[in-house]
């Protein structure tokens, strides 16, 4: 059996390989990528949670207290902890990758990527503290 029936002599016969549907499970770095991308679901969930909060606030003081105690029920608390965890991953990956997309120059000197990332983290810290202060003290 030197030559099989599907082969024409001296004609190339390319081997084409398909990407597996589960390619993102094949390597750790691919999986980390999918983990980063899937934070989108939790960002959307966080928005829904915030809007539910606003909806409860609209219905009056009693509804707000009911909603707040609903939030402290263990299954809801666990779910919101997961949402919070993934939004943190979103923030961290976002700030880490930001310097790749923006090339900042001060005059002719390129700003080092680590400094751009540090700037983002600093802004994150300032914003978080300011918002926490505004919400906790009522401005």
């Amino acid at each position: 059996m030197t030559s099989h029936s599907g082969y024409t002599l001296h004609h190339p016969q390319w081997l084409r390989r398909r990407v597996s549907t589960w390619w993102w499970l094949s390597r750790w770095r691919y999986f980390k990528f999918i983990l980063r991308e899937i934070t989108s679901v939790f960002v959307a969930a966080a928005v829904v949670l915030l809007l539910l909060y606003v909806a409860a606030l609209r219905r009056g003081p009693d509804a707000l207290i009911a909603f707040q105690s609903w939030l402290s029920r263990p299954p809801i608390l666990a779910a919101s902890a997961v949402v919070f965890f993934f939004t943190l991953i979103h923030s961290i990956t976002w700030f880490n990758l930001a310097p790749k997309a923006m090339k900042v120059r001060l005059g002719n000197i390129p700003v080092p990527p680590a400094l751009i990332a540090a700037g983002h983290y600093f802004a994150w810290l300032v914003i978080s503290l300011a918002l926490a202060w505004i919400i906790l003290t009522g401005g």
Binding site: R29, Y30, L97, K100, A101, M102, K103
Partner: peptide, 21 residues
């Protein structure tokens, strides 16, 4: 932005950064 292109580049070209920029 999977970023793998940059990881494997033997010449540190960083294509991922080129694309995002």
């Amino acid at each position: 932005f999977v970023g793998e292109c940059t990881q494997v580049c033997p010449k540190h070209v960083d294509p991922a950064a080129a694309i995002q920029q």
